[in-house]
Design a protein around this nucleic acid. Sequence first.
DNA 1: TTTGTAATTTGACAAATGTTGACATCATCT
DNA 2: AGATGATGTCAACATTTGTCAAATTACAAA
Lengths: 324, 324
Amino acid sequence: MAYGKRRASGQVSGDEIVVEAAWLYYHDGLNQNEIADRLRVSRATVVNYLQEARENNYIRVTMAPDVFIGHKLSHQLREKFGLKAVFIVPNGLGGVQSHLTRAARGAAEWLPDLIVPGDKLGVAWGQTIYEMAELLVSSGKVTIPDVEVAQLVGSMATPYGFTAEICSAHLAQGLGAACVNLHAPAIVTNADLAQQLREEPIIKKQLAALGQCNKAVFAAGSVCANSHVVMSGIASEDDLKTYVENGACGVLCGRFVNKEGKPVSGPLDERMIGVELNKLTDLEMGLLVSVGEDKAQAMCAVMNGGYATHLVTDADTAQIILDL
Amino acid sequence: MAYGKRRASGQVSGDEIVVEAAWLYYHDGLNQNEIADRLRVSRATVVNYLQEARENNYIRVTMAPDVFIGHKLSHQLREKFGLKAVFIVPNGLGGVQSHLTRAARGAAEWLPDLIVPGDKLGVAWGQTIYEMAELLVSSGKVTIPDVEVAQLVGSMATPYGFTAEICSAHLAQGLGAACVNLHAPAIVTNADLAQQLREEPIIKKQLAALGQCNKAVFAAGSVCANSHVVMSGIASEDDLKTYVENGACGVLCGRFVNKEGKPVSGPLDERMIGVELNKLTDLEMGLLVSVGEDKAQAMCAVMNGGYATHLVTDADTAQIILDL
DNA sequence: TTTGTAATTTGACAAATGTTGACATCATCT
DNA sequence: AGATGATGTCAACATTTGTCAAATTACAAA
């Protein structure tokens, strides 16, 4: 029109009008027509502004976690396993994959509420943990001062891309926290080497840091042949069989546990580098994030073992666990 | 249809389906038809569920404060007064009242980010502060552990309903914090009585608590005849005139300050009960929330005095202040 | 100055969402 | 059994929001 004042021209941050539109829309509850009038642009432009605002994460929609914690299944699970709090995400119709993503999303929303400044948070690995970390990084950055994230198990060669160090690094980034990585493989070929590594000053220090964690996030692993422990090369199928014969029915931080959550010993124990299960029993908070029928047994085991104080899962899995 | 499973029947919390609908809509981005299909209800019902979810505050939309802090005016104000951060809310067309509400909203969203566990937060009084507190209480409850809120000035008889103790009490509630009220009037008829009151053990203790505050929230008061200091009976018009003659051009926590923000002495000083200005100069954070042309001078004074480190105002007022 | 290009805006149209009122169903109370 | 109230359904309509191709503008290269 009259004097051409395009958005980019001369502004320090050309987004002021976008912000204004977003404010009017989301806060003041005006509709797009009203906003268009005030801003003297067409309504279509307002649509664009709002999209831009959403893309730039100027707007955050979150759901009150209390709602999920209050869920009926939540009560029952809390009761059954003596947990402090349980977060149930509703399960749509998609496959397990989509359930997993939703649980991750739930966990990503909940976690910041569970962490306070000064905490040291141990992090395991797995797809769920990885997705959770990703979501924390991307969607609006939380920052809690003075938090340290520590990698609970050594690294491994997963074909999926969510190794232990990536999980911990991303989570640290997502929380704006410092990160202590564990610069060692999760498993080596013989116990001697493992022991030597554990004594290496750098690694020894990192392992010591794990003992200082007061909180932790982990997933439960199943003991099927196609489980992640096997796929990532931590255990061979034979190893797995041995452990299962000894009563293993779940995996936590690379370690096998039986129905009661007690550690099951086997050929790999001495060759692994990572946190030991007894460090995980008296945490202020142990957040278990897992989904899927195949994980149900393992989750039970982990909860029976007293490692978890908090749980995120979906309604389906919750029901299965309660029926076990 | 087949087997009647009405929402209210036997559920612990009848809202599960509402939550599910909300989740699918806001998180998974499905549209109402898809949700209706999945949930096996009509679309109309989905509309109802979503409304219910919004009414129950299951959904929170917030705007990233960074955006406002990055505003051009914000830069300039930060520069001019040496502030740490400035939050500018865009100004719609409504009257001053609506600007005030928006600033309050902005402050309500920002404040939780500025408070960390262990803080002791002093709170002044005024309409803006009151509205901010209200918003914090209503819209989704923030809880920051181990925070203490203290009432900075004694109570007064305002005709508007936002007395100092209501402001602090509500704000404490909104933050999930403990509250230290000041059980004394803001002003008494003579200096002796004031002194006696200050020596009363209970009040002495409360006043001492004010000295412990590391952060504070306050508004700037103008020195017009219709300002809140006068309307609330703290100062008579004559008192006001005296102070203005002595150079006062703003009010902070009931105390008068000149252009540079230095305290202006006058007839009321000894009769007031509340924090003294010198306690407010070395705060970790002093959040000034004010809006309106009439407040501009006072705001300048307060910022010049170094009481404020953070500011929330609207674009109009910001511009006026910069032009002064 | 002209021309090309990418960003921005816009209007017309399509899709999604909200509203209303009439009605059906079920649980509960009388 | 009948009345009542809460909840869900349906269908038509009004309102709001999203999409897309075409037009406009700023800016830089020719």
